[in-house]
Design a protein around this nucleic acid. Structure first.
Lengths: 203, 203
DNA sequence: TAGATTGTTAATCGATTAACAATC
DNA sequence: TAGATTGTTAATCGATTAACAATC
């Protein structure tokens, strides 16, 4: 497995490549990508080397080829079914954002303690949390977005893991305990803002 | 300035400490915090050392004291005024989440291209983007959350920077160019999910 | 006191950067 | 060809881990 940092940057390069493609470019050199992504050209080439991505000596990288290769690495050619747990403000917004934006990532269902109490209209089916385990197994869901209040997070996480979830995008302000074949990415909005304030105040 | 990683972990420790406090504990040892946060006890002590945080030899760390010290480092004792640009689903959800959750971080205003067209009721005043610069200057805002569509992001970012913003939490799928006295934290939800799929599929 | 824990210094590890041969 | 760029190997840098003296 390639280092995590490289994986993140590879996704950033993709964002840059899409922009270049949009501008009508056909190829890039490592220093173009580096400049756009805010890293050195050596970093770009080193990252590509990790994934065995080849360019053309002196000729740089063909943007379409490169995007194809990267999308292949991330299996972006096939639809990935995802569920959202916790259909509050954040959960609902994420669902709309992801389903509207992208066609390989699809939120197929939402879960909440008591969906009928929410009195909202959703774009996806929303079921009570106690049906979650069966749904995950029946649909072989591997990825879940967790957007429930802190105190509920660990218990729901356990249910997710038991049902077969392998990756969790966690918006709850809790550090989840999971077996190490389950990966967790934390997005703690308060912490991000605090970190920003920290670096802004001192500099 | 202390290393970025340490800053992030310090914020995580705070989350853990709040949990411990909630459970009625009064003190922790470095291995308690380490276990809870998923790092080694040495890492915890090293991080504290960066910020010159002192415990008690053999006696561990008093939770209240420690929380006070950490909150002090992040200036959490005083209200931080923040604005949100882009009052779509994500922007609106973030506003509600942050204002509801925490009382030192306050979203004081939102901005959108054409607020009246949104036909939504907001909990905060929402103004058109062209009033943004003046508002930032008049209220000495230093932190902004950016949640606008990709193509609009860089231009709005430039306006923010010119008006005096020093930190940007960026939800737009764009790598922003800013002068190096302005810090940017990117939250790219699609990338986070793709990264999760990458690690889940391969392991 | 003896055992346990902190705080720091030294050693290791991994990631980034520099250098350069290969080559188009 | 000469100059420019890739891809990889070596050197550097920084962050994590280990070791241990201080001490309660």
């Amino acid at each position: 497995m390639s280092p995590n940092r490289s994986v993140n940057r590879l996704l950033q390069y993709r964002t840059c490549l899409l922009k270049f493609q949009d501008l009508g470019f056909e190829k890039v050199f490592s220093y173009n990508l580096g400049e756009e992504a805010g890293v050195t050209p050596e970093q770009v080439r080193k990252d590509f080397s990790h994934f065995n991505i080849k360019g053309h000596k002196k000729g740089g990288y063909n943007i379409n080829e490169l995007l194809f290769t990267i999308n292949n690495i991330f299996k972006s050619y096939k639809v990935q079914k995802i569920i959202v747990v916790g259909m509050g403000n954040i959960g609902t917004a994420l669902t709309q954002f992801i389903n509207f934006k992208n066609n390989n990532l699809t939120i197929v269902a939402g879960f909440d303690i008591n969906p009928t109490a929410l009195k909202k209209k959703f774009d996806i089916p929303v079921y009570p949390v106690n049906e979650m385990g069966n749904f995950i197994k029946a649909n072989r869901i591997k990825i879940a977005v967790l957007a429930v209040p802190g105190p509920a997070a660990q218990e729901i996480c356990n249910t997710l893991v038991t049902a077969g979830i392998k990756g969790i995008l966690n918006f709850s302000p809790v550090i989840l305990k999971t077996p190490n074949n389950v990966s967790v990415k934390n997005v703690n909005l308060i912490d991000e803002l605090e970190g920003l304030i920290y670096s802004s105040v001192l500099s």
